[in-house]
C-alpha cells in the first residue's frame, strides 16, 4: 500500500466551521452553475418594488407623514423599502427548504455521512450559503430602491447595522426552512410547504401596512412577529418613516427584540434540524 494521505492541521475555528464552509462553497458554486435560479430570485423582489412603488404607492397612507399627495407617495416608498427587504429575506427560507429536500433525495448525503466530517456541517453549510446569497439580493434590491426614490438618511454605520440585521434574519429563517425541508417526503412537497408559512408571517406584519391600522387582535400577533421588529428596526436604522407604533415592548425595542428572537430561533431550529438530520438518514 502506498503512503497514507497527509492530514491538515486543526483549523483555528475548529472542524465544524471548516466543514460547514466546504459545504457552503459547494452550495454557492451550485447557484452560479444554475444562473436561472439566481436570476429569478433577484427578479422577483425587483418586481415587488416596482409594483408597490407604482401600483399601490400612496394608496396606503402612513400616519404622521406627508401632507400633500406627492409627499405621501414618496413617504410610502421610503416606508415600503424596508418592508420589502424584510419580506425578501424571510422568503429566502423557501430555498433552504427545497435545497435540503433535494439533497436528501440524492445519494450524496450518504457519502457525506460516511465521511469523518462534522455532524451538521451539511446543514450549517446550506444555511450559511443561503444567507450569503442574500447579500447579492439585498444589493440588487437596494439599487432598485434608490432608483425609485428610496433614500438612506440614518448614516452609514446605521445602514451597515440594518444590512447585518437583515442577514442575521436570513440566516435564522434558513434554519427554519432547513428543518421543514428535512421533514418533507420529497422536494415537490417541500417547495409548497416551504412557502406556505411565509405568507401569513410576512403579511401579518408591518412590512406593508402599519400595525396601528390592524384590528386589535391582530396587533398583538404582528407586534411580536419578528418580521415586524426586523422591518421596524431597519426603518429606524435607515432613517425611513416608521409610522406610529402601538404600545408593545418589541416595537419599542425592535433591534434588541429582533436579535434575541433570532438567537432563540437559531438555537431551537439548529438543534431540531441537526437531530432530525441524524435520525432521518440513519434509520
Amino acid at each position: 500500500m502506498s503512503s497514507a494521505a497527509p492530514m491538515q492541521g486543526r483549523p483555528i475555528l475548529g472542524w465544524a466551521i471548516h466543514d460547514g464552509l466546504v459545504v457552503a462553497r459547494r452550495n454557492l458554486i451550485q447557484s452560479i452553475r444554475v444562473p436561472e435560479s439566481l436570476f429569478f430570485s433577484l427578479v422577483q423582489p425587483v418586481i415587488f418594488v416596482l409594483l408597490f412603488a407604482y401600483v399601490f404607492g400612496g394608496a396606503i397612507p402612513i400616519p404622521g407623514d406627508g401632507a400633500t399627495q406627492e409627499d405621501a407617495a414618496a413617504a410610502y416608498r421610503n416606508y415600503l423599502m424596508p418592508g420589502i427587504f424584510g419580506q425578501t429575506v424571510a422568503f429566502a427560507a423557501a430555498a433552504s427548504t427545497v435545497g435540503i429536500a433535494e439533497d436528501m433525495r440524492k445519494g450524496l448525503i450518504d457519502r457525506f455521512r460516511a465521511l469523518p466530517m462534522s455532524h451538521g456541517a451539511v446543514l450549517t453549510g446550506r444555511t450559511f450559503a443561503d444567507a450569503a446569497r442574500q447579500i447579492l439580493v439585498l444589493a440588487v434590491l437596494s439599487i432598485t430602491g434608490l432608483v425609485v426614490g428610496w433614500r438612506i438618511t440614518g448614516g452609514v454605520l446605521n445602514a451597515i447595522y440594518a444590512y447585518l440585521l437583515l442577514l442575521l434574519f436570513a440566516y435564522t429563517v434558513a434554519w427554519i426552512g432547513a428543518t421543514i425541508g428535512l421533514s418533507m417526503p420529497n422536494p415537490e412537497t417541500a417547495s409548497t410547504a416551504g412557502l406556505a408559512w411565509l405568507f401569513p408571517l410576512t403579511f401579518l406584519s408591518n412590512a406593508f401596512v402599519p400595525i396601528s391600522s390592524m384590528p386589535a387582535w391582530l396587533q398583538t400577533f404582528a407586534a411580536f412577529n419578528p418580521v415586524s421588529t426586523l422591518v421596524l428596526a431597519t426603518r429606524e436604522l435607515f432613517g425611513n418613516p416608521t409610522g406610529i407604533q402601538p404600545d408593545y415592548w418589541p416595537l419599542q425595542n425592535p433591534v434588541i427584540y429582533t436579535v434575541l428572537a433570532c438567537a432563540v430561533l437559531i438555537t431551537i431550529f439548529a438543534t431540531l434540524s441537526v437531530r432530525k438530520f441524524g435520525r432521518t438518514t440513519s434509520k
Binding site: 492530514m7 471548516h18 459545504v23 458554486i29 457519502r111 457525506f112
Partner: peptide, 18 residues
C-alpha cells in the same frame, strides 16, 4: 453541479486532508 475536480476537492476537504 460541481465539476469532477471540484467534487474530489470537496471530499478531500471533508476528509480534512492537506
Amino acid at each position: 453541479y460541481l465539476t469532477g475536480r471540484e467534487n474530489l476537492r470537496m471530499f478531500g476537504g471533508l476528509y480534512h486532508l492537506e
